[in-house]
Amino acid sequence: MAVDTITSKSYITHHLQNLVYGKLPAGFDRDGQILEEATWTFAHSPEEVLEMGFWSFNVDSLGWSFFLGAIFSYFFYRVARNVSKGAPSGFSNLVEMIVEFVDNSVKDIFHSENKLIAPMALTVFVWVFLMNTMDLVPVDWLPVLAQKLAGDPHFYFKVVPTTDPNITFGLSLTVFAMILYYSIKMKGVGGFLSELTLHPFSSKNTVVQILFIPANFLLEFVGLIAKPVSLALRLFGNLYAGEMIFILIALLPFWIQWTLHLPWAIFHILIVLLQAFIFMILVIVYMDMAHQKDH
């Protein structure tokens, strides 16, 4: 790129592009240079990202999500180790409030016995909340810092992991795997299959019942698939839209930005928390449904 002018379009697309690490095939034309052999590298353009295919990684999303997860684990572990020593204070209070809140939610919604659900709900809630909160960091701070550190003005850097569908689908598909695992574990393969095929239309007449199977399966299967898809897309959509609006606001002259940025950021605090809460509650609900023996 000879001319380095930033247009609105380039600014927005730049902000929406992840930092992708993947393998470019041999013979790829890279800015006029033909690669002699397949190389693992960071993508410099959306075209290169497309060329890298499935086996590439969004390093920024993964890095931030892992970093935030590690922060969550570290601080909660530290509080957990010192919890019984006298009266709680400051951060310890906050952690215990969250834990109690999650514990109550799980007790209200989840009626079976499983030691995995509450820790899973806690992880989901705090982790998703932290990832969402990255949205409140002004959109240019970390990307510009990363560009300066990397010495590359075209360095892609997205800091909000939940605006990356890979991250939200990573979460929701794991939840989906657990739904399948516990459905089969609690109800057996037959029980699970009958749940998928014998509802919502049922008949005492065996022949009619058999005729109902395809229709039932279609409905129930769509319902089943809709769980992870809606879980991932709801979180992604909300945060992506929020991020998008922050980017658009950032296009305004700097002295007027705050008039829109401030109200949106304050409103976004609600969304950040609410989406984390919804994600957690739905995970608990889905897990409860997977554990319930009778429909």
Binding site: L62, F72, Y77, W127, T174
Partner: peptide, 24 residues
Amino acid sequence: INATLIGQSIAFIMFIWFTMKFVW
């Protein structure tokens, strides 16, 4: 959609495991 999905799933399982084992 790319392999980030898998990486995220692994991280998710790891953090759940850690929380279940050491935090909760």
